[in-house]
């Protein structure tokens, strides 16, 4: 392989410490707001506070897999290795957040629904999404040829994103135990108390900064790995 388009002297390592500080600070603020500042829910009591980690992890699962899709399209279009690095990084982090979303949701479900797990549409489609992106990561291990591996993974990444809207809209399409969307609603404004909404938005922002920090670090690792791959 003679062609290399790996960017030299990129700005990621320079902004990463600041991104880390912003992520850590906002994470502390979000956690204090979620655990102590937000009011107790009149119906669910305090256990609803788990939503302040469950909803942001769900949002980041969506975001991460949409980034995989966009980076996959960009790889297929341009064949620039940076896009493959972005795709695999976002897939790995997306799997982490999807797993955490399922675990936090399960812990919330036990005292609320009385079960850790139930076979209802939102849970099943989310579990399928988790397995699909674990599969995406495993697929990458099947070939040592960089270009072939990236192309196979990109095709998978383009197809697999179909599950993201299915997960989000499954509560509308099927009779579901899971509650309907309260923030990203097709019809109208968010349907929750303003201080709860503010806490949720701060939590979503903090988790998104954590995702951005993880991405900057993980993409750097992948670019270094590609560099070693291409020089040996």
């Amino acid at each position: 392989m003679t062609e290399t388009t790996i960017p030299r002297g990129n700005t990621l390592p320079r902004i990463r410490p600041w991104l880390g500080i912003a992520a850590a600070a906002s994470f502390v603020v979000a956690s204090v707001m979620a655990l102590f500042w937000a009011p107790t829910d009149t119906t669910q009591g305090d256990v609803y506070r788990i939503m302040y980690v469950h909803v942001p992890t769900a949002w980041l699962a969506y975001l991460a897999f949409v980034v995989v899709f966009l980076a996959s399209v960009a790889w297929l279009w341009t064949k620039r290795p940076i896009f493959d690095a972005i795709a695999v990084s976002s897939a790995e982090i997306g799997v982490l957040f999807t797993g955490l979303c399922l675990i936090a949701g399960s812990i919330w479900a036990k005292p609320t629904w009385g079960v850790w797990w139930t076979w209802e549409p939102r849970l099943v489609t989310t579990a399928i999404m988790f397995v699909m992106y674990v599969g995406y990561l495993l697929l990458r291990g099947l070939s040592t040829d960089f270009s072939r591996r990236a192309t196979r993974a990109a095709v998978f990444g383009v197809i697999a994103v179909i599950d993201v809207p299915i997960v989000h809209l499954s509560v509308l399409w099927a009779n579901s135990l899971h509650q309907l969307p309260t923030v990203l609603r097709i019809a109208g404004a968010p349907s929750l108390d303003s201080s709860m909404l503010l806490t949720l938005m701060v939590s979503v922002g903090a988790f998104t900064l954590v995702y951005a920090y993880f991405m900057s670090a993980r993409v750097s690792i992948e670019l270094a790995r590609q560099g070693r791959l291409w020089t040996t």
């Binding site: 305090d46 506070r49 788990i50 980690v53 955490l100 812990i107 005292p111 690792i221 270094a224």
Partner: peptide
């Protein structure tokens, strides 16, 4: 605070997993 055990478990697992992933990134050279 009711259901404190569930709340603590959920937050601790999420925080712990994010910290573990951060450590794994550092270990891989980030």
């Amino acid at each position: 605070m009711d259901n404190l055990g569930f709340i603590v478990a959920a937050f601790a697992i999420v925080w712990g997993a994010l910290l573990a992933y951060l450590i794994s990134l550092r270990a891989r050279g980030a």
